[in-house]
């Protein structure tokens, strides 16, 4: 059995305040390569909060999040940023592309930050991803010159830029029409087909979740059996 890429142990996230709010409580999750996991649950149940913990965007109040076996909650911000850059890819409900940059430039940006590839190789990889996602002719377009579906595919390409081991998607089809949503889902499915990568997708759409290998249902911040 392969070691999990991401694992949480009793991960709890509480927001302090006059009335403390528990976003995630005692969650144990394990994500392995080749898995396509859907996190489902009603609105406000803590799905996205769990995804943020898995993606090292947030720190657990108690418990631990392991990325490739490394305990991450005590790491400094820079180390966590480096792990995100090299190991994780994010796709959000909104594309969150940088508006002043073209599709290709947006995809290249994480590669430039990581500096693993030469400048020439970065451009080649960006073009390859654009081609794989059917956006070959849109390389020079800025986000405001593309449709919602195209933008979301560029966002996926950007998430894949550094060849991450885990892609974390938060309602990736939430703002798309059925056809575009279907296309995005196909792409996410393809990502795990090689068995090298895992995808964790948050959705409230049970039909979409049914396409995943495994579903984790969250209610009131806890995993519901």
């Amino acid at each position: 059995m392969r070691a999990p890429l991401i694992e949480t142990r009793n991960a709890t996230r509480i927001i302090a305040g006059d009335v403390p709010a528990t976003l995630v409580a005692d969650v144990d999750v394990s994500v392995s390569a080749g898995e396509f996991i859907a996190i489902i649950g009603p609105s406000g149940s803590g799905k996205s909060s769990l995804l943020y913990l898995l993606g090292l965007l947030d720190r657990p109040t108690s418990g631990e999040v392991y990325l490739e076996g490394v305990a991450t909650s005590a790491l400094d911000d820079d180390s966590r940023a480096d792990m995100r850059l090299a190991t994780l890819g994010f796709v959000f409900q909104f594309h969150f592309l940088l508006p002043e940059f073209s599709a290709r430039e947006n995809i290249i940006l994480p590669m430039r930050a990581l500096r693993r590839l030469s400048e020439k190789a970065q451009v080649a990889r960006a073009d390859m991803l654009l081609e794989q996602l059917g956006l070959k002719d849109h390389a020079h377009k800025r986000p405001d010159q593309m449709s919602g579906g195209q933008r979301q595919r560029v966002a996926i390409a950007r998430a894949l830029a550094n060849d991450p081991k885990v892609v974390l998607a938060d309602e990736p089809t939430g703002n798309l029409d059925t056809h575009s949503g279907e296309r995005v889902l196909e792409i996410l499915n393809d990502l795990v087909s090689s068995g090298q990568r895992a995808v964790v997708m948050v959705t409230h759409d049970l039909a979409l979740a049914a396409r995943a290998d495994r579903q984790i249902r969250i209610v009131d911040g806890r995993i519901a059996i």
């Binding site: 911000d77 820079d78 940023a81 995100r84 850059l85 940088l98 994480p110 930050a113």
Partner: peptide, 16 residues
């Protein structure tokens, strides 16, 4: 602010 957040989520360090 949103672009900054997305850059940091992608893995940009605070100093960058």
């Amino acid at each position: 602010a949103r672009d900054i957040a997305i850059m940091k989520s992608l893995g940009f360090r605070a100093k960058s």
